[in-house]
Nucleic acid binder design. Structure first.
Length: 480
RNA sequence: CGGGGUGUAGCGCAGUUGGUCAGCGCGCAUGGUUUGGGACCAUGAGGCCGCCGGUUCGAAUCCGGCCACCCCGACCA
């Protein structure tokens, strides 16, 4: 086992962690990856966390087909423009050409819109609050494991509402109570909820909101998005209902998604020079027992203790494993640190003699802690919670240390150019897309979002770039 | 899809003036000694040298084409 690449070469480090921690592997299909058991176990825990919240906010799961008639994509002008370049088409089955090509879904607004139009007739049918867990395909030019793959797993929620206000409330409910809550509490990654600028919004949306997280190199990652689609898709697909006043009205729809990209976010928000650091709430293995022995007698003594601790922890609801492989302890320490297991439990002859075990948190390997065997089942859950909080606190402190308020554009450019400082720049912006594009061309920084929580616009405030009157408080950053 | 780079054992690499150039380290297998921060010794297994074509008596090595991967852009969850 070799160390992961130096974090100075961040792209290399990221890939090393993904592959060496057995999260994923390359597949024979370009841009597609295999999610290995360790990565998939993490994803399953993440799915559970999000799905619980999706249901708690009143949504139900359903499933739509993988294939979408090509013509559906064409019905919403902006949508087709946004997605057409990257959709995979099925044009032939066997040796027969299909009468109409089928799109392998890049997202399902269109086919869902088509069906919703048939399901909605009356205001009494509303709202429709559905979600699906599925895979989608977007043939991206450049791929990176988890962050951008040709096929990825996600959930996509699609709702229909009677009024614009209700749709907007839904969009924000998902953003805050599902995405932000999940990412911050379970993944221990602080995020900034905000609205996307016009140029960054979803193809076909009225308004797009996102939560943005900072990665370990100061770049931003869009962790989830929630779109108020207005009446765009409802009009294109004829989702209409007769309201209480007898009028036939066009419905308001939303859509929202979070994907396996969140795994990439987790890796980059918490990983360190030794590898992954899994937030305990979603860690596939929360505690790893490393038995230590020399002689057979010792092994027996230790085995009894390991079994006792393992059983007690399992009963306490801890995801625990014992590593009995024929490797030396030091080798195992390094491997489990690479894989980011939150707590290591060392159990050896010395511990057996004193009736205790040694706990080592992934967040601080020097913080070894001796705990009486009888107290382990009580101590570990508490320690896991401490680690969860520590990871969040560290990520937040890092983000704060890399968040700036540029005094002027010169300072802005300097911050973006210096890799050791690179991060979020908060600034006033005029709201002009041309100005936004110029900033991007000159600094590579884009507007990540316009934070929902922001300072009041002071009198005389001007755009950080063009100097015209300010309109929006924006977060600028280079992004994944 | 543009610019750059790299393809030799599972991984990391050396070898590239054409001719004992099929090699090293790690990993893997077997046996032994070890085991509280990545052990050591011994013996082994493992290669169409990315693919196709050309030049040549002879190609990992030279030429052409293709493919894959990585980095930097543009595009995007």
């Amino acid at each position: 086992m070799q160390d992961v690449a130096d974090m100075d070469d961040y792209a290399r480090w990221y890939q090393d962690v993904v592959y060496k921690a057995d999260m994923a592997d390359l597949s024979p299909v370009r841009g597609c990856m295999v999610i290995r058991p360790y990565g998939y176990a993490l994803w399953e825990n993440m799915v559970r966390g999000m799905d619980d919240r999706i249901k708690a906010t009143g949504h139900e799961n359903l499933y739509f087909p993988l294939f979408i008639p090509y013509s559906f994509l064409m019905k919403e002008a902006e949508h087709v423009e946004g997605f057409a370049p990257e959709v995979a088409l099925v044009t032939r089955v066997g040796s027969e050409e299909l009468e109409e090509p089928l799109v392998v879904r890049p997202t399902s607004e269109t086919v869902i819109g088509y069906m919703y139009a048939q399901w909605v007739h009356s205001y009494r049918d509303l709202p429709l609050l559905y979600n699906q867990w599925c895979n989608v395909v977007r043939w991206e030019k450049r791929t990176r494991p988890f962050l951008r793959t040709s096929e990825f797993l996600w959930q996509e929620g699609h709702t229909v509402h009677r009024t614009e206000e209700e749709a907007e409330a839904e969009t924000l409910l998902i953003l805050n109570d599902v995405y932000q809550d999940f990412v911050e509490k379970e993944l221990a990654i602080p995020v900034i909820p905000g609205r996307k600028s016009e140029s960054e919004k979803f193809a076909g949306a009225l308004r797009t909101y996102s939560i943005e997280a900072m990665m370990g190199d100061g770049k931003a990652l869009q962790a989830a998005t929630s779109h108020n689609l207005g009446q765009n898709f409802a009009r294109s697909f004829g989702i209409e209902f007769q309201d209480a006043d007898g009028q036939v009205k066009t419905a308001w729809t939303t859509s929202w998604g979070a994907s396996t990209r969140l795994i990439g976010a987790l890796i980059m928000a918490h990983g360190d020079a030794n590898g992954l650091r899994m937030p305990p709430h979603v860690a596939p293995t929360q505690a790893i027992i490393v038995p230590i022995w020399r002689k057979d007698e010792e092994r027996e003594t230790v085995a009894a203790l390991v079994a006792e601790v393992e059983t007690a922890l399992r009963k306490a609801g801890v995801r625990v494993k014992a590593d009995w492989r024929e490797e030396r302890p030091g080798w195992k320490y390094n491997e489990w640190e690479l894989r980011g297991v939150p707590v290591r439990i060392e159990i050896g002859p010395r511990d057996a003699a004193t009736g205790q075990v040694t706990l080592v948190p992934r967040t601080d390997r020097s913080a070894k802690e001796a705990v009486a065997t009888s107290a382990v089942a009580e101590r570990i859950p508490a320690l896991l919670e401490e680690i969860q909080q520590t990871l969040y606190a560290q990520a937040l402190a890092f983000r704060q240390s890399r968040t700036y308020q540029a005094a002027d554009y010169a300072a802005f450019k300097e911050l973006m150019a210096d890799k050791s400082k690179q991060g979020f720049v908060e600034a006033w912006w005029c709201g002009d897309a041309v100005c936004e594009a110029q900033i991007k061309a000159e600094t590579q920084a884009t507007i990540r979002n316009l934070p929902i929580e922001h300072p009041a616009l002071p009198a005389g405030a001007v755009c950080v770039h063009c100097g015209k009157p300010a309109a929006e408080w924006a977060i600028f950053a280079k992004a994944y």
